[in-house]
Nucleic acid binder design. Structure first.
Lengths: 341, 341
DNA sequence: CGTTATACGTATATCGTTCTACAGAATTTG
DNA sequence: CAAATTCTGTAGAACGATATACGTATAACG
């Protein structure tokens, strides 16, 4: 009983270290931040004490005045397999720079995302990477003034208060259309995501634009049509896809804004006895690991998730260092052809 | 230029609120924590000011003396689709209790996991949920003394310093074997994960035990055999699975410790022209969303990931409230039969 | 009516850092 | 050799909350 709570080891603080090393608290702090004005002798003495005592600075206390050496990552839809690589890239880059990163999951719910961002600010994190945030533009502008921010998968090339890294989504969409055209299919439709607002900042909005432009360039505007799906993967999605496949107006080829829906579609087609690609060609976007499975074998656009993550983290680091002009970067997409289209 | 950094809105603190409401700082703090000794009149006055000023308490400052109202989630392998439901369950439960949760990704790398746990402690988080940690038992015992902790997917039923929630992994494994037996197959092998140490705390260790026991009960001990895979999904895994499938000793049925490898296996079998389940039956574990896809259609064990998450979060909340006796809970697994076996 | 509880608020020490000022020693300069 | 200039290290005020200790009305009691 006395054991359960009792063994409070009374945490070792900067004061403990200072006492142990026989120097002032300020001196230890200087060593920690490797700030100016500390001799080699002092440094080694302090480092030895830190080592011996197993001291770790308290981030909460640190955050009150200085930096927390931690960045927050906000992801929208935890389920999208596209995130794996992005997050791996972000984590690796931060890790190498001596930063920690913690992830918050927003579930595509605006209010929750807002609360998480605020929570990260309140934790005194040094910066934020927002992956495909579903926030109104003003909100984003507002928060990015409070904390260094970089977005991935959000197109706002004129924003001045935050950076962005994106796949060239218009180009990617066009690549799919062009590939379909080369196969001789013209009746090409698109499945996209419900737009959030009129600003066309979402990746799906940009892919729609790319799709429409490519169709127009090919003189096929009259065949272009877009179906919008809700974000949640409720039964609605399945029903919609089902009626989509069985309708008379079913296209010859479908470009899906994300592997997420393309995979569902390919499976549903399989169940309905619709041959892919003989009856229906399908392409996704993201080149996720599942799309690459031989049994799924989905044509897709690789947007180099890992690179997106790495670049975003690098940008955030320089922004934390003080850069204040905005950078907006594009990464070239790559078509990965597989049996589905 | 003056715009980039200049617009420092000088954050609203508890002092601002106190001034605005015309009360003391302590009074505001009391309202925030709804502590004892505050009249309705005062409360409404303070809440109005909070509302008007848009005040949010600084978590870092909070964590220095009181609670941060945030829990940390440590996940090992971000890629395992099993995590989706677990994390959703944890998040939903914390959210409802007014807690935030932040996720750290350990990548199955021991040292990194340790650093993340320490980081979460240093952030003054109120508690930790560790999902399938790959830590030595002493380390776990050590950290769980420093911060309220609950583990998921880690079997240590005698631990006194932390709680655990687990699928009954032995039972789940046995269910698979029994199902194979009912189909008339006896030559049943298992693919498992490289053990971390001799303590058999990992879920894969427990599933091995369940598998061996079930084989023994059926008088098939002589046919039981286990192949161990590395955790990383390097080419090694693929090579190993390839030679596994082409070897003369290929079993009639395979029980995989996780959908992760079962999916790989089913795809590889497909590529090699091995009919599933006619030539080879396959079962996974986790009943992940991918396993349920008609094109994959993998028999699997559902371990109610969401429920695991919910229970773990609930336990952590009561432990944060002061409970000090350990709880170790099992959740009944459920077999989901599909075409693969 | 005086005494004792009780409810409500306030003042202030405290948490563990960072960071600004400054003092003393060592070094360079004129 | 005195004065000016580094170079090191220290003291102590923040940071923004919590929580303890205490004072003062108000209510309850005998």
């Amino acid at each position: 009983m006395a054991d359960g709570e009792g063994a409070r080891p009374s945490r070792v603080t900067i004061r403990t270290v200072a006492a142990d090393a026989g120097v002032s608290v300020a001196a230890v702090s200087k060593v920690l931040r490797n700030a100016y004005g500390v001799s080699d002798a002092l440094r080694t003495k302090v480092l030895a004490s830190i080592q011996r005592l197993g001291y770790r600075p308290n981030v909460a206390a640190r955050g009150m005045r200085g930096k927390s050496f931690t960045a927050g990552i906000l992801v929208t839809d935890f389920e999208n397999p596209f995130l794996f690589d992005v997050i791996a890239g972000i984590n690796a880059t931060f890790e190498a720079a001596g930063y920690k990163s913690l992830i918050g999951v927003g579930n595509g719910i605006g209010p929750l995302e807002v609360r998480l961002i605020e929570s990260m600010i309140d934790f005194r994190m040094d910066g934020l990477v927002l992956v495909a945030p579903r926030l109104a533009n003003e909100e984003l502008a507002n928060y990015s003034r409070q904390i260094p921010s970089v977005v991935i998968g959000h197109h706002e090339p004129l924003a001045t208060t935050f950076d962005s890294v994106n796949s060239d989504d218009r180009r990617g969409a066009a690549m799919v259309v062009e590939s379909f055209l080369r196969s001789g299919w013209q009746d090409i439709a698109m499945i996209s995501l419900e737009p959030l607002d009129a600003s066309a900042t979402n990746v799906s909005d940009q892919r729609e634009i790319g799709y429409l432009q490519a169709m127009q360039s090919a003189g096929l505007s009259h065949l272009a049509r877009i179906t919008h799906m809700p974000l949640d993967r409720a039964p609605v999605v399945n029903d919609t896809l089902h009626s989509y496949l069985t309708a008379a107006s079913r296209p010859r080829a479908v470009f899906c804004w994300s592997d997420l829906h393309a995979i569902e579609l390919r499976n549903l087609a399989h169940c309905l006895g619709i041959k892919v690609p003989d009856d229906l060609a399908i392409s996704g976007y993201d080149n996720s690991r599942i799309a690459a499975l031989p049994l799924i074998d989905l044509t897709s656009i690789d947007q180099s998730g890992r690179l997106l993550g790495v670049r975003a983290a690098e940008m955030l680091l320089t922004r934390i260092e003080g850069r204040s002009d905005a950078i907006h970067e594009f990464i070239e997409p790559r078509l990965v052809s597989r049996s589905s289209g």
